[in-house]
Amino acid sequence: MLSEIERLPAQVAARPHLLRLGRLFSETVLIRVDDVEHYLVFDRGRIEAVLPGPSKKIPYRFAIATDGEAIAKFWELLPEPGFHDIFGLVKTGRAEILGDILALVKNLRFFKEVLALPRGARVTGESA
C-alpha cells in the first residue's frame, strides 16, 4: 500500500473545508496504482478506512487506475503538463476512470483535492 494513500484519512480529517465539501459523499473508491489496490471507504467526507486489495468482494462506486510513475509525477509540487490533474492523466492515457464517473463528477472538487493532498503534504513536510 502506498504511504501517501495511507496518510489520506488523517489529512482529510484535519481539513474542515474538505469535510464540508464531502458531507454528502459516502462511497467506496478504488485507487489502483500498477497492481496495488486501495479501497477508500468514505463516510460523509471522512475516510473511515483504507482497505488493501486485491479484492473481488469490495464493491466500489468508481475507480482510478494509474501507474506508479504517473502518480509520482502527479504528486510533485509543480507537475509537468498532463500530470497536473487526474483528467490530464486520463487524456494522456496514463490513467483510467472506471465505474460511475458521474458520482465522481458530482463530487469532483472534493475528490480532486483529496487525491492531491500528498502534493500539499510534500510542500509542508506534513506527516499526518
Binding site: P79, H84, D85, V105, K106, L108, R109, K112
Partner: peptide
Amino acid sequence: DWFHRPDAHGGEMGAALVSANISPH
C-alpha cells in the same frame, strides 16, 4: 450534459472540471 442537471450544481461541477486546464504555476 454533466453541466446541466437538476440533481447537481452545474457551476461547481464545471469549475471543478476546468480546473484541469489551470496551470499549477
